[in-house]
Design a binder for these strands. Structure first.
Lengths: 193, 193
DNA sequence: ACGTTAATCAAGCGCTCGCTCGAATTCGTT
DNA sequence: AACGAATTCGAGCGAGCGCTTGATTAACGT
């Protein structure tokens, strides 16, 4: 098995992701990451050229989670309103889910080299494109109005900020949260689709 | 003049704040901060016990800027809608203004000790209280509905996220941005006050 | 059983970091 | 001018960092 896609490598990635999320990229040392999977710190560099390479991998797959959530919303929902709802739910689930530590992609941009940053930005643009598509349909259906680019930024801001206060362990489910937020942004049209 | 409130100390604080904002707390070294004001790195510790003390000071005065913005909005605006608008404008101005580097208070919580964190949280709660007060009035006037705590989180999320994309140098003024965002959250009631 | 390659270890290099400290300098007061 | 206090310097300590390297072990096809 090639080191590029070995099991150990995945193990390292997910341990690193959790550490990056919990204490931040700068404070998470390669020794910490190694200890989390039970190997010596030097062995990490058999799988990754640099510590930054680990971050790039983590952030890229985190962004991919958002892309996937968006694509699922677009294909599995029919009406503009339900597409928007699924976009909300999918985004929140990606943010607060347990599989990937997608939170890292929101807070560690600073530690990326310009070249790596461009790679991630491309994925982010893909996500933005899907939102804009759904928002255009929603606007055509009279659900929303105003500058749709600004609306997307407002919506994503609200959703992403949930990282600062929301816990899936609480009494508010992700679906409920998505519905409440959705009502803030389109209070008219109670049962339109 | 006591070292507690000397001019040099203020100089250090504002230089440190800018560095924290630009490259993050972890990557901003005390040597960087010292060089920015033209002294040796060791001299910093004549004014601050630790590097973290600098961050605490920066974050505390940043939070104070938001408190001040909120108080101004509450006293200088009359109707619920205009209070909310001034809250939006004041918050955005504090975020993107040139006097304080308030952005630091949103991104560097992780580097605070539990004790320091509690100090800042207290100020944040004060800000939240003002928002809730305005939102209660807005709800009473029929401007908004739903869970007001969630609404506050949604609004502040939208505003705070602007840090990721908004630049005051662009064609969109802060007042315009505040108005557009406000319309997203209360599209009915065009001219209600 | 052997040889080859993949995977891991153990040690440590070179560097930067926050911070210390005694000496030197500046400054206000008399 | 002289003194004490406030301020700054300059050198460096000790620790932790990312990363390297040569040796060592594990895994596997033949």
């Amino acid at each position: 098995m090639k080191a590029e896609d070995s099991e150990r490598r995945q193990e390292l990635l997910s341990s690193a992701a959790r550490l990056f999320r919990d204490v931040g990229y700068a404070r998470a040392t390669v020794r910490d990451i190694a200890k989390a999977v039970g190997i010596q710190s030097g062995s990490i560099f058999y799988y990754f050229r640099t510590k930054e390479d680990i971050l790039v991998d983590v952030m890229e797959s985190a962004m991919q989670a958002f892309v996937g959530a968006g694509q699922r919303a677009l294909t599995e929902a029919a009406t503009p309103r339900s597409k928007l709802r699924e976009l909300f739910v999918g985004h929140l689930k990606a943010l607060h889910g347990t599989t990937d530590e997608t939170a890292v992609v929101l807070s560690e941009w600073r530690n990326l080299s310009p070249k790596s940053r461009r790679r991630i930005v491309k994925l982010r643009d893909q996500v933005d494109g899907m939102w804009d598509e759904v928002l255009r349909e929603a606007a055509a259906a009279g659900l929303v109005r105003g500058d749709l680019g600004l609306l997307r930024l407002a919506m994503l801001g609200s959703l992403n900020w949930s990282l600062q206060w929301y816990s899936p362990k609480g009494s508010l489910s992700i679906e409920d949260l998505a519905d409440r937020f959705l009502e803030f942004f389109l209070p008219m049209s109670k049962a339109r689709g």
